[in-house]
C-alpha cells in the first residue's frame, strides 16, 4: 500500500514539474512535439530509476559509514552524469532520430534539477528502503513524463489556434504551464508524505 501511496504522491500530488517547479528547462524546451517529449520522459525515467538505486547504495553503503554525507551532491551528480552518458550512447545507437530530436537536452539531464531533486528527496524521506526510494524516483519521473506529454499535446494544439501575436510561442506556453500548475494544485492534501 505504501508503495502505491509513494508513487501517486510523487507523480500527482507533488508533481515535480507542476508543484515543485523542478525540471522546467526540458519542460519548456522539448515539449514542442508529442513523440519527442515522450522520448525525453522515458530517458529521464530510465536515468532516475537507476540513479536512485545506485545513489541509495552509494549514500548508505559508502558515504554514511565514512561520515562523508556532505559529499552527497557531488557524488549524485557524478552518478547521474555517468548514467546519462550510457543512455545517450544507447539512444545514439538504437534510436538515432530520437537522439537528434532531443539534442542538447539529453546531456542536460545530467544537471536536470528534477533528477537531482528526486535523489536528494530520497535521502531525506526514504533513506531506509531502496524499494521505496526507487518507487519514489520512478513516480517522480512518471509525473515529469505526464506533465511533459500533457503539455506538449496542448502545445501541438496551440500551433493551430489563433493565438494573439503578442503571446505566440513561449509566452502562451508559459501561461499554459501556469494553468496546468493550478490544475495540479487540486491534488494538494490528498496524500501527505
Amino acid at each position: 500500500m505504501e508503495v502505491v501511496l509513494v508513487f501517486v504522491s510523487a507523480a500527482l500530488v507533488n508533481n515535480f514539474v507542476l508543484s515543485r517547479s523542478l525540471g522546467i528547462c526540458p519542460f519548456i524546451g522539448v515539449s514542442k512535439r508529442l513523440d519527442t517529449s515522450l522520448g525525453m520522459g522515458l530517458a529521464v525515467t530510465l536515468v532516475m530509476a537507476f540513479a536512485s538505486a545506485i545513489t541509495h547504495i552509494v549514500y548508505n553503503g559508502i558515504l554514511v559509514p565514512l561520515g562523508l554525507e556532505f559529499l552527497h551532491i557531488i557524488a549524485f551528480v557524478l552518478i547521474t552524469a555517468c548514467l546519462v552518458q550510457v543512455v545517450e550512447m544507447y539512444l545514439k545507437k538504437n534510436a538515432p532520430n530520437l537522439y537528434k530530436a532531443l539534442g542538447i537536452f539529453l546531456p542536460l539531464i545530467t544537471t536536470n534539477c528534477a533528477v537531482l531533486g528526486a535523489l536528494l528527496l530520497n535521502i531525506e524521506l526514504f533513506s531506509g528502503s531502496i524499494v521505496l526510494a526507487m518507487v519514489h524516483a520512478v513516480g517522480a519521473a512518471a509525473g515529469f513524463t505526464l506533465a511533459l506529454v500533457l503539455f506538449s499535446g496542448i502545445r501541438e494544439r496551440l500551433n493551430y489556434s489563433p493565438v494573439p501575436k503578442l503571446f505566440e510561442g513561449v509566452p502562451i506556453a508559459m501561461i499554459v504551464a501556469g494553468l496546468m500548475s493550478i490544475a495540479f494544485l487540486g491534488f494538494t492534501g490528498m496524500i501527505n508524505l
Binding site: I62, L71, A75, L78, I79, C82, V86
Partner: peptide, 20 residues
C-alpha cells in the same frame, strides 16, 4: 571516495562505450 567512484564509473562507461 570521490576518486574511487569516478574511477569505477569511468571504467563502467568505457565498457558501455565499447558495447554501444
Amino acid at each position: 571516495v570521490l576518486g574511487g567512484l569516478g574511477l569505477f564509473f569511468g571504467v563502467l562507461l568505457s565498457f558501455a562505450g565499447m558495447k554501444l
